[in-house]
Nucleic acid binder design. Structure first.
Lengths: 230, 230
DNA sequence: CGCATCGCATTTGCATACACAATCGCTCGA
DNA sequence: TCGAGCGATTGTGTATGCAAATGCGATGCG
C-alpha cells in the first residue's frame, strides 16, 4: 500500500501507527468531526489514514475499552451514542470526582502547587475580559489538572483526566454561552478561597456546584439546539 | 492452525476469540496465576490459546487500555507492576468513589433497593460465623454493587466497578486475615444504619473509613509477605 | 399486494507473511 | 580484563489474504 515513504519530513510519523490513529480518532470524536452514532468502517478508516486494517482495528478496540466507541461483534463500530441522561450522569460523575480531588488537594497541596494554581487563576482574568473562549478553555483545563495533580494521588488524577476527556466531546460548546465564562471564573475564585483557608470540605462543595452549574448550562444548550435523534 | 474443530461440543467457543482471551487473561491476572511483572509474549500466548497473534494482540491492547498490563512500544507487554504506593493510591481512589456512591445512594435508593441491600447484609451473618471467605467475598461484592446501582447513575456505577475490578488482583487475599471478616461486616452494619437514617454524609464517611481499613489490612499483609522486587 | 426465504455483497474476525526495531552475545581493541 | 562496536536473533508492528457472519435485496409464494 502507499507505504513508500521512508522520509520523515512529515514529522508526525513517529511512534506507533495504531496509537496515532487512536489519537486522531479521539480528537475527531471530541471535536465532533465524527458525530455520535457515525459508523466506523475499518477499511474506510484504513484508507483514510493510509494504513491497513490491523492498526485501525487495534485503535478501535482501545477506544471501545475507553468507552468512546461501541463495537458490536461482527457488526462494526459506531461512535458512542449518548443520551442526554447519560451525559448528565457523566457530568455528575465528573463533578463528584472533581469534588473529591479538590478536597484532597486542599489538604495536601504544597505551597509551590498552591502558588501555581493561583498563578493560573490570575492569568484567566484578562482572558475572561477579552472573551477568549479557547484560551479560557485551555486555562480552565490546566486549572483543573493542577488540582488533580495536587491530590498527590496519581491514580486518582489519571482517572479524573480519563473521565474528563471522555466528557470533552460534549463539554466543548458549553462555555460559549453568554456570561458563563465570567461565572465560571467567579466560581473558581470561591474555590480558591476555600483552598486558601484550608477548608477542603467547603472547596469540595463549591467544586461540585461549579461542575453542576456547567452541566446545567450545557443542558440548556442541548435543550435549545435539540436535534433529531441524538 | 489447529482450527479443524467445527463442533461446538466444548461449549465455550462462542463469542469472539479476542474477548475470550481477554477474559482469560483478566482472570489469570486477577487470581495471580500471571504474576505482576510477568512478560507477555504474544506468540507464546497465541500458542497457549490455540489462536494466532492477532486476537492476542487485540486482547492485550484492551487490557492495556484498562491498565492491567503495560505495553512498551516494540518491547512487548508485562503484567502491570504495582508499587505499594500505587496500590494504596488505588485503594484511596476506590474508597473515595465508594464514599460518593453511598452518599448518592442514601439519598436516592428506592425502598425496594433498600430492602435488597438489607437482605444481602443479613445473608452475610451466618457466612461470617462460618468463616467462609469466598462466600463473603462474593456477598461483599454484591453488597457494594447494589450500592453502585442505587446511585441511579449507571455511568458512575460502571466507573466504580471498573476501578474496583482493577484493584481486585490485589484485594484478593486481604479478607483472609484474622478477624477482618467480622470487622468488615460490622463496618457494613454502621453504613447500613446511616443509610437507614437517610444520612448520606455519615454513610459516606463510614464507607471511606471502611475501605481504608481494608487498605490498611492489605498494607500489613504486603509488609508481612514482602517479596523481592515488586 | 404483503411476507417469508434464499442468495449475494459487504464487512468483520482471524490467520499468515513480512519488515524493522530492540536486545543479546560476540569479537576486537585498549 | 573490561568496554565498545557490530552482527544475529528474537519479537513486535503492519500488511494482506481468507473464511464466516451479517444485512440487504430479489424472488417466489400465499
Amino acid at each position: 500500500m502507499a507505504n513508500g515513504f521512508e522520509t520523515e519530513d512529515d514529522g508526525d510519523d513517529r511512534g506507533l501507527l495504531s496509537d496515532r490513529i487512536r489519537n486522531a480518532l479521539t480528537d475527531e470524536i471530541a471535536t465532533g468531526t465524527l458525530a455520535a452514532g457515525a459508523a466506523l468502517d475499518e477499511q474506510q478508516l484504513a484508507d483514510r489514514f493510509g494504513a491497513s486494517r490491523t492498526p485501525v482495528r487495534e485503535a478501535l478496540r482501545q477506544l471501545a475499552a475507553g468507552g468512546l466507541v461501541e463495537l458490536r461483534a461482527r457488526r462494526g463500530g459506531v461512535v458512542a451514542r449518548m443520551t442526554p441522561e447519560r451525559i448528565m450522569e457523566m457530568f455528575e460523575t465528573v463533578a463528584e470526582i472533581e469534588a473529591v480531588c479538590v478536597r484532597l488537594a486542599a489538604y495536601r497541596m504544597t505551597p509551590l502547587e498552591r502558588s501555581h494554581l493561583i498563578e493560573l487563576h490570575d492569568l484567566s482574568e484578562p482572558i475572561v475580559e477579552a472573551g477568549n473562549f479557547d484560551a479560557y478553555d485551555s486555562l480552565n483545563r490546566q486549572f483543573h489538572e493542577a488540582i488533580y495533580h495536587a491530590t498527590h494521588n496519581s491514580f486518582l488524577a489519571e482517572q479524573a483526566i480519563a473521565v474528563r476527556n471522555r466528557l470533552n466531546a460534549f463539554r466543548r460548546t458549553q462555555l460559549r454561552q453568554g456570561e458563563r465564562l465570567r461565572r465560571s471564573r467567579d466560581e473558581h475564585e470561591t474555590i480558591m478561597q476555600a483552598i486558601a483557608e484550608g477548608d477542603g470540605e467547603m472547596a469540595s462543595r463549591r467544586m461540585r456546584a461549579h461542575m453542576l452549574n456547567a452541566a446545567t448550562s450545557l443542558s440548556r444548550f442541548i435543550e435549545t439546539n435539540k436535534p433529531g435523534g441524538v
